[in-house]
Nucleic acid binder design. Structure first.
Length: 770
DNA sequence: GAGTTTGAAACT
DNA sequence: CAGTTTCAAACTC
């Protein structure tokens, strides 16, 4: 890892350095470029971010966590370039960055230790560093975030910088209020937020880069440079100011606080950003795949600036955006259309649009494969799906690519929304609607109009394949992308995987009469609320991770306690918990006391505690059985985390994932949402579990990730964490895991434990309360 | 691709 | 809370 990265970094750095922007920045910022090889490494290490996708449930509203960003994290490995840059810049700040990184590392370690309280460790990382990073990243991130629905969040951010920075990486930070909508994730409270903030400015700037549409954008482009100045300013300023509190200390502080009340204000943020960065970097590296490259190029052309990086970032963002993003994207596209009327035409806009359209088109073709390599980001937005990006990528890749592609526009559109987040959201929704409505226009080529179905932009490929096939394919790969095939539920019930996961139906979905679209946001939210009212945990990740694994795993010892458990437990009677019918099995976790299953043979862990040894049939278990359990478990864990990767051994994704996860799990926990990816359920693709050969490459990381659980984590989760400690019973009902003692000690449980799904999101805070 | 099985979700 | 129905995924052929 390191070595290659370094090399890349160095190269990339050199490139950046060459770029006018870079120079400009350098001149502006006090920061001095370091050549921080080590830094880069640190970043990588940092890449915690897991994907979490968390949907903020309306209820929960993301507290802090909503760190959608996490998704981005995936990218990490690639990031190197950026990271390097960042690193440089950061380093300029007194090595704050390094500190940060280290902090993260530490945090991760801490997490491993699992102090529930510590979870925040990451947060603790260091506000400063964050700032620094922000400053550095801002531009990129801004684009990012902006693009993402999440951006909405920031209502408050008074200070542009903060907001942006936050938005980008930290979205959550902006304020508790901020709701990030992870792309896919429902924006529960979107509108509210809209507020104001200078976001717009930032957004516009950032977006502008990306987006051509908005008139503002045009300026924005200019702004890019300005960014370097403004943002840049924000950049340098952010760096300087932020640290110093210059720009809007308050905001930054507030936001931070908001997000992480418990934690120190800025701290938490950093990680995300970092992750994002990484993602971005990774994306960049990978880049190619995503539209981004194209876009970036275009962007650059237009901008003429070195925005390349930014563009890359953007592209990356896009990649990350995917699903939900798609929605947004589509929206964005629509928006363009809409804007066309008004805005689009705008100087930039026009071009942008065209470009976009062209891009989109291009993208479409692109999809197919191109990028599978990197997709890292892609899934992120959503749930688990996103998470699991499997090697297969092929298809997934397509999705990703698509999404990524799509995302661009959307992002753009989103950015457009000049004003508040609300507007953005609305616009998005509108756009989405529009999209549905009018596929024709712009870009949409990709997008399906199909009203009912999803917004799916289905790639052609997807469409080709029957839903089932798709599923199989996808699933097989991973569930990275969840798609549903609902016919009667209108995708407004938990029957719908997408809905359950807190994401809008999109691409691959084959649903009919789907209401789970941005267009029907109100309906979706209302429905969600109803469901939540009935069962607060309804949207909580089904699989709760415990940190336990981490610890133990860390060692490798096989024993990891069950890291995760299904929230409610299963009720299987005929499947022996050996098939995906079983949610526990599907989630890669062992059955627990909560399960009422009969004849449990869950390979991941039998309910009784009896050792899993049974061998259950692991359907997939590759290895054979015996070791099986342990191995499986380990694998499981690995898979889970790695899953996406699992298929791909060390693909960057995998790395990313690893990295990513960290941040997520802990931090992000969105309230309920599911993780995007995982969260949705946190399920992992079942099959994969077995395979794992790899024994946990990174258990620690995982652990770290988990550790973070942040505050958000419901007690339950936290409880889990403390491996040794036992699980605290969560207030929630359900599932609290039994006392550690049990877990830890009882073999039976252990068996179950292993897997950790990190489902990202833990529960929504809501649940516990119930 | 169609049909069956399964178990969660929803309903009563 | 338990029983039944509905639903869509998982699975089989």
């Amino acid at each position: 890892m390191d070595t290659p990265e370094k090399t890349q970094i160095t190269t990339s750095l050199s490139k950046f350095e060459d770029s006018p922007i870079f120079n400009y920045i350098n001149s502006l910022s006090p920061i001095k470029p370091l050549k921080s090889i080590h830094i880069t490494q640190t970043f990588q290490s940092l890449s915690f971010a897991s994907v979490q996708s968390i949907f903020t449930s309306p209820h929960v509203s993301s507290h802090k966590e909503s760190r959608f960003l996490r998704r981005h994290n995936y990218s990490d490995p690639l990031k190197s370039e950026f990271s390097s840059e960042n690193g440089n810049k950061v380093s300029s700040d007194e090595g704050a960055a390094l500190d940060v990184v280290q902090l993260y590392d530490n945090s991760s370690e801490l997490q491993e230790n699992f102090d529930p309280g510590v979870s925040i460790g990451e947060v603790s990382v260091g506000p400063r560093s964050e700032h620094l990073k922000f400053a550095l990243e801002l531009p990129q991130r801004i684009k990012y975030d902006c693009g993402s629905p999440e951006c909405d969040a920031t209502p408050r951010c008074g200070p542009q910088i903060d907001c942006t920075s936050e938005l980008a990486g930290v979205s959550q930070k902006c304020s508790p209020e901020c709701k990030v909508h992870p792309q896919g994730i429902y924006q529960t409270e979107q509108k509210e937020e809209a507020s104001d903030c200078d976001w717009e400015n930032l957004m516009s700037d950032a977006t502008g880069l990306l987006i051509f549409n908005s008139p503002i954008d045009t300026k924005a482009f200019k702004g890019l440079r300005q960014k370097s100045v403004d943002l840049g300013a924000s950049f340098s300023a952010s760096v300087d100011d932020v640290h110093k509190g210059g720009i809007d200390p308050v905001d930054s502080g507030e936001q931070h606080e908001m997000e992480y009340p418990s934690t120190q204000p800025g701290e938490t943020i950093v990680p995300k950003e970092i992750n994002q960065f990484r993602d971005n970097l990774a994306a960049n590296n990978n880049s190619n795949k995503c539209m981004t490259s194209n876009l970036s190029e275009e962007m650059e052309n237009e901008v003429g600036i070195s925005t390349g990086v930014v563009s890359k970032a953007v592209s990356i963002l896009h990649c990350g955006m995917r699903r939900r993003c798609l929605d947004f994207e589509t929206v964005g596209a629509h928006r363009k259309k809409l804007s066309n009327g008004s805005n689009s035409s705008t100087s930039v806009g026009g071009q942008s649009d065209e470009k976009i359209a062209s891009k989109d088109k291009q993208l479409v073709p692109f999809k197919p494969g191109s990028d599978s390599s990197r997709r890292v980001l892609p899934g992120i937005g959503l749930h688990l799906n996103a998470l699991a990006i499997t090697s297969k990528d092929t298809k997934n890749a397509n999705h990703e690519t698509l999404s990524s592609v799509i995302s661009l526009p959307s992002t753009v559109a989103s950015f457009h929304s000049p004003s508040t987040g609300q507007e953005l959201n609305e616009s998005l929704s509108l756009a989405a609607a529009d999209v549905d409505m009018d596929p024709t226009e712009s870009d949409v080529p990709l997008v399906e109009d199909v009203p009912q179905t999803s917004a799916c932009l289905v790639t052609e490929e997807f469409k080709h394949s029957s839903p089932k096939k798709k599923r199989h394919k996808l699933e097989g790969e991973s569930e990275a992308c969840k798609r549903c095939n609902c016919k009667k539920s209108k995708c407004l019930k938990l029957y719908c995987e997408c809905f359950a996961a807190g994401v809008y139906c999109i691409e691959p979905c084959s649903c009919q009469d789907c209401f789970n679209k941005p267009i029907h946001e109100d309906t979706v939210l209302a429905t969600r609320k109803q469901i939540e009212s009935r069962n607060p945990l309804a949207f909580a990740p089904k699989v709760i991770r415990s940190s336990e694994t981490a610890i133990e795993i860390g060692d490798e010892s096989s024993k990891t306690p069950a890291s995760a458990r299904h929230k409610r437990g299963c009720n299987c009677k005929k499947s022996s918990c050996l098939k995906k019918y079983c949610e526990c099995y599907q989630g890669g976790v062992g059955c627990s006391v909560n399960c009422r299953c009969e004849g449990c043979k869950n390979a991941f862990g039998i309910k009784d505690g009896s050792a899993p040894t049974e061998k259950e049939a692991e359907p997939e278990d590759e290895t054979g059985g015996e070791n099986s359990i342990i191995l499986q478990k380990t694998e499981m864990q690995n898979n889970e985390e790695q899953n996406p990767n699992s298929a791909l051994p060390m693909t960057p994704l995998a790395l990313c994932r690893q990295l990513l996860q960290l941040p997520f799990s802990s931090k992000t926990k969105p309230p309920r949402s599911f993780l995007s990816v995982g969260s949705s359920s946190g399920f992992y693709p079942g099959p994969k579990y077995g395979k794992p050969n790899i024994l946990r490459p990174r258990p620690k990381l995982e652990t770290q990730v988990q550790a973070p659980h942040d505050d958000d984590m419901p007690e339950i989760l936290r409880g889990n964490f403390s491996p040794s400690t036992g699980i605290k019973t969560s207030p929630n009902s359900k599932r609290v895991s039994p006392p550690h003692s049990i877990l830890g000690s009882s073999p039976g449980r252990r068996s179950g434990r292993k897997l950790i799904l990190q489902s990202i999101p833990s529960f929504p805070s809501l649940t516990p309360q119930h």
